[in-house]
Amino acid sequence: MTKATETARFLGIILLTYFIFLFNIIPLPQIIQEEILPVFPWWVLVSFGAYSLGNIGYHVYRFRDCEDAYHELMAEIQIAKDDLKTKGVTID
């Protein structure tokens, strides 16, 4: 099963459940039926969007700049060049 079919199946089950309640096949209290169900998909959509932006934003914020790794590497490259020259490797 591909990830696409896996996803489609999951969404299919969710949608089916939603329509069963939306069209009153299984009755729910009137307040849920009239006030919540019609706007529920929009709530899900906005929530997912907010989650996505929040997730990306958080991870960009937490993205570490490893300045130290750069300076360490530069020092090591110099040591390597010096050592390689003594061994007869052509270093430009």
């Binding site: 960009v60 993205f63 570490r64 490893c66």
Partner: peptide
């Protein structure tokens, strides 16, 4: 403790 050196904000956003 992973990280990157040499990426600006735009590059980080695209990557994430």
């Amino acid at each position: 403790n992973g990280g990157v050196y040499g990426w600006d904000l735009k590059r980080k956003i695209i990557s994430r």
